[in-house]
Amino acid sequence: MGDPPRGGPEMADVMARVAGGDQEAFSTLYDSIAGPVYGLVLKVLRNPSQSEEVAQEVLVEVWRTASRFRPEQGSVTSWVMTMAHRRAVDRVRSEQAATDREQRNAHREHTPDYDTVSEEVTIRLESEQVRRCLRTLTELQRQAVTLAYYQGYTYREVAASLSTPLGTVKTRLRDGLIRLRDCMGVDA
């Protein structure tokens, strides 16, 4: 089926002129194809304002890419309508992706990453257990563990602080940590 515009030359000829930058030819093409493009896009999108926007995008794309039209591959109408359908489907996919993203973000905002009350209770219980177990150490072990693990001293700094040989500090720390592990019921 040939697709002549209302009372004018063949559409392929019009498209060739559009490809050459002829604005009058584009006006003729626009008058002929804008209604069907909008109708097709509206069937896909079902939103009049978005359909107008997408139809305009398609017609601008027709103007910019008219030189790519190949009459041996089909009619102008089918080329433009294929472009319109693809653009409309892309918009649907884009809108769906945005909706999905918003729902995921909303879900994340309303779902805590973890149970904060449970976390705080666990930390307090563990802290109390550590304090209780620290009380089971000898004074020298407790001092060494406190300096090394709670105040961040190196073994050498612990030795200097306690005026004790480095080897003795290492032994106290090892023995103290073993006692803490056993007291807290941690498997080795």
Rank of each mutant, 00 (worst) to 15 (best):
R124N: 13
I123E: 15
T122V: 07
T65Q: 14
R70S: 14
A98W: 10
L125Q: 13
E102R: 12
Y114A: 03
V121C: 04
R101K: 12
E61V: 06
A98I: 09
Y114N: 03
H110C: 09
P71G: 15
E72R: 13
R86D: 02
A84D: 03
F69A: 15
V41M: 00
I123M: 15
L125A: 12
R124F: 12
A88Y: 01
E52W: 00
E102P: 10
V117E: 03
Q56P: 04
S118P: 01
R87L: 00
E57L: 06
T99N: 09
E61C: 08
G39F: 08
L45C: 07
R93I: 02
S94V: 03
S67F: 13
D100N: 07
T65D: 11
Q73N: 15
S49W: 00
Q96M: 14
R124Q: 15
Q96V: 10
K43Y: 11
T65V: 10
E109I: 04
Y114C: 03
V92T: 01
T122N: 09
T99G: 07
T99D: 07
W79K: 03
D113M: 08
E120A: 15
L42E: 14
H110D: 08
W63L: 14
R87H: 03
T111C: 01
T111A: 00
R101G: 09
P48A: 09
Q96R: 10
Q50H: 06
E95D: 06
V92S: 01
T65K: 14
S94I: 03
Q96W: 07
R68I: 07
V54C: 00
D90E: 03
V80A: 06
T77W: 10
E120M: 09
Q73M: 13
S78W: 09
R91D: 05
V60R: 09
D113L: 15
Q50C: 04
T82N: 03
V76D: 04
D113N: 05
